[in-house]
């Protein structure tokens, strides 16, 4: 469904991605783990179209989208929930959610979609009139995911959804991701929290200084010494 072929990427002269290749099949949860500054977020920004590649290709649903602008990829259901939530602080929760459906041709009839995300995140229903900026970190993360879902993703990209959240909230987000996958949504999850990422994912990639150093079934990766030592703290 989604495929990166030998993607190279630079910020000014810094070579942040060196020939990264990865693939996500329809209905899969795939994780990318790795230390800080390994290029995880850049990988997602390249996929979403926020960052230009300097080499290689991004394929989505069989088509080369490498040169397509970000807003066009969103319209095809390739939706990024960005790092640090990036919700609209002065919009109400409801307006944030509606904005998520901006690109949909049927955006005038969103009652069912709203009901679905409120069912997934009852807290957002309670706070629907409140300004996005007044929510707690965990609630903002829920809002960011819910806003992404309002766009009817076929492939959802999640960038560090656990970042800066209390363990109990992380667990809640994890359950939500599982629930979404159970409905058949394809998910690419980028996480520093390797334990969470490997537990949720079918397959995973380990990204180190801009290249894929390990890949495989999540259950197998969890058993490898390198991952245990470096990422799971065992």
């Amino acid at each position: 469904m989604l495929q990166l072929d030998a993607v190279d990427c630079h910020y000014a002269k810094v070579h942040v991605l060196r020939g990264v290749s990865l693939a996500v099949g329809a209905g899969e949860i795939v994780s990318v783990i790795g230390p800080n500054a390994a290029g995880k977020t850049t990988t997602l920004r390249v996929i979403a179209g926020l960052k230009d590649v300097s080499g290689g290709a991004v394929r989505y649903e069989g088509e080369d989208v490498t040169r397509r602008p970000a807003f066009e990829r969103v319209r095809r259901g390739l939706i990024l929930v960005p790092e640090g939530r990036q919700i609209f602080p002065r919009f109400s929760v409801l307006d944030n959610l509606l904005m998520g459906a901006y690109q949909r041709p049927d955006r005038h009839d969103l009652d069912r979609d709203l009901a679905t995300v409120y069912e997934l995140f009852p807290r957002l229903h309670e706070r629907r009139g409140q300004k996005g900026g007044s929510l707690s970190g965990g609630e903002q993360q829920m809002l960011a995911i819910a806003r992404g879902l309002m766009g009817r993703p076929r492939c959802l990209l999640l960038d560090e959804p656990s970042l800066g959240l209390a363990p109990i909230v992380v667990a809640e987000i994890g359950r939500t991701i599982k629930a979404l996958a159970a409905r058949g949504l394809t998910i690419l999850l980028v996480e520093q929290n390797a334990a969470m990422a490997l537990e949720l994912a079918d397959r995973a990639y380990v990204l180190e200084s801009g290249h894929v150093s390990l890949q495989g079934q999540a259950s197998e990766l969890r058993q490898t010494d390198v991952v245990k030592r470096l990422y799971l703290g065992a």
Partner: peptide, 21 residues
Amino acid sequence: WLGRAAFAYAQNPEAAMLMGV
């Protein structure tokens, strides 16, 4: 919707782009 997009863009241009604006 155009107005909503404009206000969204005013608050966070990149997030607005991620909404398909």
